[in-house]
């Protein structure tokens, strides 16, 4: 059996094992359910906004007031995906952690790693096989999620997505895979590196909570316009151009806040996905060339992190003298 065939055999085994694992299946169905729920909630939320607009319009007309200043809520089907992207950030990352943990834990728990390594297969090939199998699984899971997302948006939004919109979803799908591989690699790395598997799992969760929830939350909380209910500038009735002029004087603070947010890999993924899908108003309706020119750095960051953690995991797996020792 040549080396590639060996790697492929390990990958196939990883793929099949994960599909039989209850923990993985629980999280997969949970993720699919949450994404479906988030799109439906977003659709009802939009309907609510339309109803509020129509009520306000009716009242203004009845009282004989001018209605030109009232702007009608615009429907952008891809904006329904905000919650779905957030759940991919949160639950998708947990799913990837589960895969990384199980990939190593099952071998350590069953003492099969020692047996595998007595066979004529290099440590690097075993690692590569495991990585490939799980990467294929992440691609399959993301594929199911994004096909599901497209169908639900079509049905809930009562519209057929255009070719350009489908291409934007495809780009988001690609970067979702890269993002999820970061958490898979972190969890695999910790499971190889630490003697205690539960500690590896808990530390993976600590890293997850920091990257996914805490750092973005701090950045969001430090936003000056988030300090007062309704927003500071709204309370002063200031138009957007004036707000920008004022904030320009506090660019050092904004830069500090932005730098803090940039330490979170999740934030990079979110910024990129929100730009592709037009969830962030600044990028809604803008060309992909414009989006790439503005947000390419986010793509580079998550790709680099994914590569680095993957390579680091491989190095540890190959170089660590004793891979598994009973506590």
């Amino acid at each position: 059996m040549n080396n590639f065939a060996k790697i492929f055999t390990v990958a196939k085994k990883e793929y099949a094992d994960a599909l039989k694992n209850r923990v993985f299946l629980v999280f997969l169905f949970f993720l699919l359910f949450l994404i479906g729920v988030s799109i439906i909630v977003a659709a009802f939320d939009f309907q609510g906004k339309v109803a509020v607009y129509q009520n306000a319009l009716l009242k203004l007309r009845q009282s004989g007031q001018v209605v030109e200043n009232l702007s009608e809520p615009q429907f952008f089907p891809l904006q329904l995906l905000r919650g779905a992207i957030e759940y991919l950030e949160i639950i998708g990352a947990i799913l990837a952690i589960v895969l990384g943990y199980l990939s190593i834990a099952k071998e350590k728990g069953n003492n099969t790693l020692q047996l595998i390594l007595t066979r004529p297969i290099s440590r690097f090939s075993v690692y590569l096989g495991k990585f490939l199998g799980n990467a294929l699984l992440i691609i399959s899971v993301s594929g199911i999620v994004f096909v599901g997302i497209t169908l639900v948006v079509d049905i809930v939004g009562k519209t057929m997505l255009t070719g350009s919109q489908l291409y934007r979803i495809f780009l988001t799908f690609i970067f979702t895979i890269i993002y999820l591989l970061i958490f898979f690699s972190i969890s695999t790395l910790l499971s190889i590196l630490l003697k205690s598997l539960p500690n590896a799992l808990i530390i993976s969760f600590v890293i997850w909570i920091l990257f996914v929830l805490i750092i973005p939350q701090i950045g969001d909380t430090m936003d000056p316009d988030n300090q007062v209910p309704g927003g500071l500038f709204n309370s002063l009735h200031m138009v957007k151009a004036d707000q920008t002029a004022i904030l320009a004087k506090f660019s050092h603070y904004e830069k500090m806040r932005d730098n803090l947010e940039q330490t979170s890999l999740t934030k990079h993924y979110e910024r990129l996905a929100f730009a592709f899908l037009g969830i962030k108003d600044t990028y809604n309706g803008k060309s992909l060339e414009f989006i790439f020119s503005e947000r390419a750095i986010d793509g580079w960051w998550i790709s680099l992190a994914s590569l680095l953690f993957g390579v680091f995991g491989a190095v540890i797996f190959v170089k660590k003298r004793v891979l598994w020792k009973e506590e």
Binding site: V26, S38, G83, E86, I90, I94, A105, P198, Q217
Partner: peptide, 29 residues
């Protein structure tokens, strides 16, 4: 042991994000 940790984490996500989203219409962040 892993399932014993993952299931409570699932419940935690449900209680912290899913139910509040359904009740309030707010996204997790």
């Amino acid at each position: 042991e892993s399932l014993a940790l993952f299931v409570p984490v699932c419940i935690w996500v449900g209680i912290s994000f899913v139910l509040p989203e359904l009740v309030s219409g707010q996204t997790p962040t």
